[in-house]
Amino acid sequence: MKKFITTLLSMLLVFIATAQDTANDTATAQSTGLRADGKIYVVVAVIVTILLGLYVYIIRLDRKISKLEKHS
């Protein structure tokens, strides 16, 4: 399971990296990286963080229940 989480996280990094690439095409000093395109990437980062957080939570819940099932 840990492996999958690392894989997912690295996938997320790839998305951020591509975001930066497209941003550099029209780069100005103030609007590069996550600040490009009206800072929409910041919103993407926020909602993806929330989604990942919820998934980490549900995975932990899942494993806790699995442990209980093994004991009973």
Partner: peptide, 16 residues
């Protein structure tokens, strides 16, 4: 895992 991947895709592609 498919659910995680699909929703990550939705949240990123859906906005971009």
């Amino acid at each position: 895992i498919l659910s995680i991947v699909l929703l990550l895709y939705t949240f990123i592609a859906g906005l971009l």
